[in-house]
Design a protein around this nucleic acid. Structure first.
Lengths: 237, 237
DNA sequence: CCAAAATCATGCGTTACATCACATTTTTTT
DNA sequence: AAAAAAATGTGATGTAACGCATGATTTTGG
């Protein structure tokens, strides 16, 4: 289960840093310099990138694949806090203040990451203040999303929560489809339940209900077609 | 209900900016320059500082008093997202990208704020990158808190939610007391309920229960004495 | 200090979700 | 392609929080 250096050099000569929005203000030469600082790693599905409570010393940037950030609650549940995919970063909180990670991060599929060491990142930020602004922007986006999550979790109706999460997935992972928007779900039913604080069974039941109402169509376990987005938005309130 | 300029000059000549952590890296001369940019305003209890959906052009920093940030949900509830008190700032999200406010902010008591105009703030950040890092730190703290909120809201047991919020208040507003920690509650029962996604009645019932168990002692409606912090921490998990 | 208004406590019936159990389907493995 | 494993759907049942109603208490404002 060792975390091996990535065998593929899919990005070593391709300036993967260029793809990443927080570096978007830099020019080619600066990016080349950054590329030299980056270490690449590759994780298989189910592998842990970060363990809650662990001391961190790098910023993780996802080059390919996706991960979930979660905590194991005392009552045995798993609460998923964030989903990270291509271009997202995490571990930033431990770069400013010395602090252990407050969640675990697990690969949901084969995931390739770029690592920048804490020290290098701090130098970069000093040299290019624009990076700090980009990071701030992303943190604000993340706050927005969490505020929405808190709002929907505070809402009593469970239908609204399920609808919200489907809309979120549609925006993030959805692809156009002749009959609507096709989503390749990043999580199974239990994962969705752990993301919005419900049980697997309740998510199942509500999704079946949405299908009966003609709002969505399930295609196997991993694909969902949003047929009537408007209805979903109305349900999500 | 007009938002009048503050009559008191409690801070005009006292470099109120000095108190504010995001400016802590600046020296006296720089602070004086900032003080000139600041506009002071004063709001009475119940007044709105920001209305959800409003275009924003300033950063608000609380000099004295406290406020709640909230949204009115479609089902008629009010979801409180943040509590801000002395030294806290808000409105930052609208300074980076042009975006309307995604929550309303209301004064919970007489509140004095310092306002910095978007344009001035952006210049300041360019000139003093340390400010951006300080803002990032605060944003991270806020993310931490929201992540905790999501975790406790996802937890099924309501006792844990109530205990968590009491602990949060104890840390933020608690004062030492011979028998434990005395809290001056920033919110009434309904407010607490809207903060953690419960009903007023449920909060009432659970707090009565905690009192019966000898964990807390209520003193009128606005004061709570934490008698057994350990028990509360155990309940909060 | 008193009266009015606001806030809080609590009993009770109802509802919605959790929980358990098991059949079924889908996915993975060989 | 078949077998094994994993994930999902669904019914029955219990329970905990909601929602309403009402009386008690606390706070506010003159």
């Amino acid at each position: 289960m060792g975390k091996l250096l990535c065998a593929c050099d899919s990005c070593r000569n391709k300036l993967c840093a260029k793809q990443i929005s927080i570096f978007s203000s830099l020019d080619g030469q600066q990016l080349t310099k950054i590329a030299d600082l980056i270490i690449h790693k590759c994780y298989k599905k189910g592998e842990l990138l970060i363990l809650e409570g662990e001391t961190m010393n790098s910023l993780f940037i996802i080059n390919k694949g996706q991960t979930k950030a979660f905590r194991n609650t005392q009552d045995g549940r798993e609460q998923i806090l964030h989903l990270f995919s291509e271009g997202d970063f995490f571990g930033e909180r431990n770069l400013l203040r010395d602090q252990v990670s407050n969640y675990s991060v697990e690969a949901l599929e084969e995931t390739h990451v770029c690592l920048i060491h804490k020290h290098d990142f701090q130098l970069l930020v000093r040299e290019h203040p624009d990076i700090a602004l980009k990071v701030m922007e992303e943190l604000c986006r993340r706050l927005d999303r969490l505020e929405n999550t808190v709002e929907t979790m505070g809402t009593r109706t469970v239908e609204a929560r399920v609808s919200s999460v489907l809309l979120e997935f549609a925006d993030k992972y959805g692809k156009p489809h002749p009959k609507g928007i096709m989503i390749e779900l990043p999580l199974n039913r239990e994962g969705i339940a752990n993301y919005i604080g419900l049980t697997r069974e309740t998510v199942s039941r509500k999704m079946s209900l949405l299908q009966d109402e003609g709002v969505i169509e399930m295609n196997g376990n991993k694909k969902v077609l949003i047929v009537d987005r408007t209805a979903l938005e109305r349900l999500a309130e």
